[in-house]
Amino acid sequence: MADGDPAILDLTDLRALRFASAGGAGGSPFARDPFLVVAPAGAEEGDEDALAAWLARQPCPVIGLPAKGTAPALLAACDVVLDDPAELAPIAANIRKAPLAAMTLVQVLRVTAGMPPAQALVVESLAYATLQAGPEFAAWSRENPPAPDRVAAEDGPAVRIEREGPHLGLILNRPRSRNAMSVDMRDALCEALQLVVADESLASVTLSGAGACFSTGGDLREFGTAPDPGTAHAIRSQRLPAALLLQCADRVTAHLHSACIGSGIELPAFAHRVTATRDTFIQLTELRFGLIPGAGGCVSLPRRIGRQRTAWLALSGRRIGAATGVAWGLVDEIVD
């Protein structure tokens, strides 16, 4: 193992670490490696379920490297499973840059896996608020101070509403800003979705974006403008498009094109049906801000692609294309 490379734990190492920690924390966001990397292949000794339960309690991401003979329970307990060991180094580097956000991400994904979605959204928001008060987001904010006055003025409503009989079209309408999810757009989308929830005569709804892409996610110029994390959580508790989408998702089709970043994929993933053009790419970038997906992505994406793939997207920051989206179940159909 080269100097600085992550330690990779086999079954013997895992058993020793679990024993040494008295069943408590074997990993830590404050360690040199704020994650555990496990390659737990080997003969079964009957303690795999206990080891899996211990891994699932670790206050850090658990990264699995599968090999022949690995107990399924141990792989299922991992937050991310890498088929290619070459992926380990970049994910490890990302976690080291934001260990608190990485820890919070995997804890939220674990604890919300069996929750009703509406309750899981509350957990996500509380965790997001915690990180807004943390040192990693503060460091990013010092280098990128809020600049809401730089949000470009554009003509027309932030969300254009087009009704034709029982069908409603909702179009994100800030193309010059690449449909970044500003407060203005968030509130307009909430108002439109309230209409959908209230009017059951609307049999179908299409959510799309005007301009070059669907959405590049939260407007970074407005990050950090809430007076405090508690107030920000209270606002999300009342003005969260995801909570309204949950109530009408069975009538909603989301159509994606080009960039779908952060909330630009977190919200569409709630829809009953998701279509995408061939040039669509999907990315979760919140970790680099010291945050986790906070527009509902910790709830919508796992229910489409599973906890481990969601964690991979968030921890790696990598893009996937429309074809991978279809293979994973995040996109239902590629359309021209």
Rank of each mutant, 00 (worst) to 15 (best):
V111C: 07
G134W: 03
P146D: 07
Y128I: 03
L126N: 10
P85M: 02
R142V: 11
A98R: 09
P85G: 04
V106D: 01
M115E: 14
S177Y: 00
A180R: 11
L126G: 08
E200R: 15
A101V: 04
L195Q: 14
G134N: 01
A92I: 10
S177I: 00
A76P: 04
A92R: 08
V81S: 11
N173I: 01
E200V: 12
N144Y: 09
L202S: 06
S208F: 05
S182L: 12
R176G: 08
V197F: 03
Q119Y: 04
D199G: 08
L193E: 11
E191T: 14
L170W: 02
E200N: 13
E154I: 01
G169D: 01
W140S: 14
A118R: 13
A139K: 13
D149I: 00
R142A: 14
L109Q: 06
G134L: 00
I161F: 00
E136N: 09
A158N: 02
A86T: 08
P99N: 05
S204Q: 14
V196P: 06
V183T: 14
E162L: 07
I95Y: 08
A203C: 09
G169S: 03
L88G: 12
A188E: 03
E200T: 15
I161D: 00
P90D: 14
D79Q: 09
P148E: 09
A129I: 13
P157Q: 04
A138D: 15
L202H: 08
L126T: 07
A129H: 09
A76G: 04
D187I: 00
V122H: 13
F137S: 12
V123P: 04
C190S: 11
D155V: 11
A198E: 15
V106W: 02
A89I: 01
H167L: 06
A101H: 02
A138Y: 06
L126E: 15
A129C: 13
L189N: 08
L105C: 08
D187L: 08
V81I: 15
P145E: 06
V197T: 03
R176L: 11
N94R: 12
A138V: 07
P146F: 05
G165S: 12
A138Q: 14
A203N: 05
R176V: 12
S177R: 02
L88R: 08
P116N: 10
S201N: 14
L195W: 11
I91C: 05
P90A: 09
K97A: 14
E164V: 02
D187E: 11
V196G: 09
V81T: 15
T130P: 00
S125H: 11
A118M: 12
A118H: 09
N144F: 10
I171H: 00
E136F: 07
G169W: 00
Q132D: 08
L170P: 03
G156K: 09
I91E: 05
D184I: 01
S208P: 06
L131E: 05
A192R: 05
M103V: 00
R160C: 01
I95T: 06
P145A: 08
P148H: 06
V106A: 03
S125A: 15
L88T: 12
D149H: 07
A203K: 14
E87D: 14
G156E: 07
A192P: 06
E136H: 06
R110S: 01
D83T: 15
D84Y: 01
R160D: 04
A93C: 05
V80L: 13
Q132M: 15
E87R: 10
A153F: 09
A188L: 01
L207H: 09
A127T: 03
L109Y: 07
L172Y: 02
R110N: 02
L105I: 04
R150F: 00
I161L: 11
